[in-house]
């Protein structure tokens, strides 16, 4: 790569991005590394290989680099699908690093004369402080808007509800799990009654905050004949009125 500064930079960026994406355990930093590794560097390497003998404008270089990166990923995923290991973190990283290295090497060999230039020549950008401040403000406002959009806001007219569920425990069949999820607008008191597992019903009283879930593990006696189990949920404010009911047939 001697003399091809842009290709050298691409290779360094590729290795740094791959190492960061693979080994840094912090997602935002991984994303910052993975985005250029996936969506720009492969395309830049491919375009450099294809157009080793001629220069493209910066806009052309950008648009073809993006498009070739997408195309490389689209066709690359087909290749990985039939490779041992399949489509995984490591195989993606290896594929991308190999692709970029091979294309950069090919581009370096195909370029007629080593060039010490950074890339296509063009006028230098003159960035004034005012411009920088305006752009930063605009980007910050946009970022705040997107961040706000991710937030949940109070929705007073939205009707809350509570869900009751029942499933066999995952680890073994020796117990049932009964859960109550509150999506109510305010804190509520509930009464849960599970019948059918023993002579006496299982009663629980509890309070749930909005968004809270409570799960009860209900043991099932070994050798119990198959029978119906019913869990009923009542709101404490209306103990006589059935609010939710789930039912299943269970055997020990």
């Amino acid at each position: 790569m001697r003399g091809h500064r842009d290709l050298k930079l691409v290779l360094i960026a590729t290795f740094v991005c791959a190492v960061v994406a693979l080994f840094v355990p912090w997602e935002p930093i991984q994303v910052v590394a993975a985005v250029p590794l996936c969506l720009f560097l492969p395309g830049y390497a491919i375009v450099s290989l294809l157009f080793a003998g001629r220069e493209l404008s910066r806009a052309q270089l950008l648009v073809f680099s993006l498009a070739c990166s997408f195309a490389a990923l689209v066709l690359g995923v087909l290749l990985l699908n039939y490779m041992p290991g399949g489509i995984r973190k490591v195989t993606w990283a290896v594929f991308l690093v190999l692709l970029i290295c091979a294309c950069c090497r090919g581009a370096a060999l195909r370029r007629p004369h080593p060039s010490r230039r950074r890339g296509p020549e063009g006028p230098r950008l003159r960035l004034r402080r005012r411009d920088l401040a305006l752009m930063t403000s605009g980007l910050l406002i946009g970022a705040v808007a997107i961040a706000l959009a991710q937030m949940a806001v109070p929705a007073e007219k939205a009707e809350g509800f509570t869900a009751l569920w029942m499933t066999p425990a995952k680890a073994s069949n020796s117990s049932l799990r009964v859960g109550v999820v509150s999506s109510e607008q305010k804190e509520e008191d509930f009464a849960l009654r599970v019948v059918g597992l023993s002579e006496r019903p299982l009663d629980r009283r509890f309070r749930l905050e909005p968004g809270e879930e409570r799960v009860f593990r209900v043991p099932v006696k070994a050798g119990r004949p198959r029978g119906r189990v019913t869990a009923s949920l009542y709101k404490a404010a209306q103990p006589e009125k059935l609010y939710r009911r789930v039912t299943a047939w269970v055997e020990g």
Partner: peptide, 10 residues
Amino acid sequence: GVASSLMSLT
């Protein structure tokens, strides 16, 4: 496939 590259790597 493109999305899975980002999802798998990060």
